[in-house]
Design a protein around this nucleic acid. Sequence first.
DNA 1: TCTGGGGTCCTCATCCTT
DNA 2: TCTGAAGGATGAGGACCC
Length: 392
Amino acid sequence: MTDRENHGAPERVIFHVDLDAFFVEVERQNDATLVGKPVVIGGLGPRGVVATASYEARKFGVHSAQAMAVARRLCPQAIFMRGSHGLYREVSKKFMDVLRNYSPTVVPVSVDEAYMDMTGTERLYGPPMDAARAITKMVRDELGLPASIGIGPSKLVAKVSTEHAKPNGIFQVRQDEVEAFFAPQPVRNLPGIGPKAGEALEKLNISTLGELVNAPDGPLRRALGPNNADHVKRRAKGIDNAPLRERAKAKSISAETTFDTDVSSRSELEKVLKRLSERVGTRLRKSGQLARNASIKLRYGDFTTITRQRTFPVPGDGDQTIYNAAHTLLVTAMRQRGDAIRLLGVAVSGLGEQAAQLSLMDVNPTAESDTSAAIDAIRDRFGVESISRGSV
DNA sequence: TCTGGGGTCCTCATCCTT
DNA sequence: TCTGAAGGATGAGGACCC
């Protein structure tokens, strides 16, 4: 829909609901001694990073994606935890159920945030601010979790508003306020502007969205790429007509691991590759899909990362099929560069429904698939570690 | 000094087919 | 039969998000 087409339509009311320091708050429910203390959740190994930090820890400069070692230095008195991701998924499901009481259109973005279309709900819940207060109250009453809500005429504006609502608040920006609200925002507040684009804009002396809107097109296009520059400029004006839509099925499934110390032993890498292939295969079969491609990801000690991809002769979902392709790719890559490896990953993509398997050109993909499915059944019953293929 | 894991989307290069 | 253009498929890499 173009801007013009949107004229005359009632202003959309979109909520962006975000749970504050979600992982930490869930842990605090299980252990009240964590309340009021700096808590950091993330990987505890030598190469772990911060997933979430409590507001008490953030005061010391701890933030997500930071190396755990740095977080420990900044805030040694914090409580460091690995986190219980299965539990977070369960709580997240309940959170989405609470939101569905208020709107049929709830689109989860991640475990701790979702968009809601609240257009036309005034007669039921009153003005948006009242509805938002009711939702945060219900989230707190039912789940014991603090939530922040940003309200706007689009997903983009709602999302940026949430940053002003945090922690534990509500912030609304109406259509006629969007331009004035966006103009003074730092460019990095615009979703889609990450470290690289932020740096490129800084070089052009552009630090706010207002400056971005008024920047000449030529240098902007050179800095961000022609298509992206136009897109970003529109968003910097707060223009976003994207509809609220359920996320499509996953397009790829992957698993990867970072080693505590870099690994150069081929047999060690093969063992891990096998395990990763099985993890991916199990999830692929659970999704009821077949994959057309397998790929590996390698990161070396100097942090350079490469990916190598291979297409199956026919779509498949068996562990062995995935492993064989991944192994070929790994051997070829190691021949080209034999350096020790920091991270190893396996992925499948080109996912499609089972019917694709009816193309009967291959050796015997079903037999292999049956073996993998049998292994899945045993794992479901007795746990992931209960059975492995011989080489693992 | 240190940079996880699981994703999506975009761009660009290359190869193959028409 | 050769050649070049166009376009799709594939592969690689990078940026970004939570």
